[in-house]
């Protein structure tokens, strides 16, 4: 995972660019895309309640990591859309998907010592794309670059 700030800033940029084309895409809906970009990192619930603890207590194998692949991400998108009122659900689902997709796109580009990324499309397929090897989640420049982009887009939005 790239750092979460980079993910939400990239989603902000993408959704704001789309808002210039779609009038209904108001700031609350831009936020929805940013929430979508955070969904795969819900696997970090592992830091709060470790998967091993859940396995030990319940006796069933358990892995928060499912959030960070297609299957868990999509289910979280569906649940997120259902949490909103019916007239908004399609748009919310679309924007959550945009955020999720941008998250996985950025994470496949991460440096991985094995040369392979994670099985992003699981459980549809166990295919692991070659890792992009562009940056580490601990690098500072991805957040800096996305912050500059977000700043430009933010400025353009209010000064068009």
């Amino acid at each position: 995972m790239a750092d979460l700030l980079t993910h939400v800033l990239v989603a902000y940029v993408l959704a704001t660019l789309l808002s210039w084309r779609y009038d209904w895409l108001t700031p609350p809906f831009v936020t929805v895309a940013m929430i979508g970009a955070a969904i795969p990192d819900l696997n970090r619930l592992d830091l709060v309640v470790p998967s091993e603890t859940i396995t030990a207590v319940t006796g069933v194998p358990f892995d928060w990591g499912a959030f960070h692949v297609l299957g868990g991400s999509l289910l979280a998108v569906a649940i997120g859309a259902l949490l909103t009122a019916p007239p908004h659900r399609r748009r919310v689902a679309g924007l959550l998907l945009l955020g999720v997709a941008s998250h996985h796109a950025l994470d496949v580009l991460l440096i991985d010592a094995t040369g392979y990324s994670y099985p992003v499309f699981w459980p549809l397929t166990d295919y692991q794309p070659p890792s992009g090897n562009l940056y580490l989640s601990t690098d500072r420049w991805p957040a800096a670059v996305s912050a500059v982009l977000a700043g430009v887009v933010w400025y353009a939005r209010y000064h068009r």
Binding site: S51, P61, D63, G71, A76, Y118, W122, P123, D126, Y127
Partner: peptide
């Protein structure tokens, strides 16, 4: 909604059971 939550939980268990088998390599 309940069905989706159950499915999500099932995915965590499935993922836990799959372990390394989730990966092709």
């Amino acid at each position: 909604m309940g069905v989706l939550l159950l499915l999500l939980c099932a995915t965590f268990v499935w993922s836990g059971a799959a372990g390394d088998d989730r990966s092709r390599e």
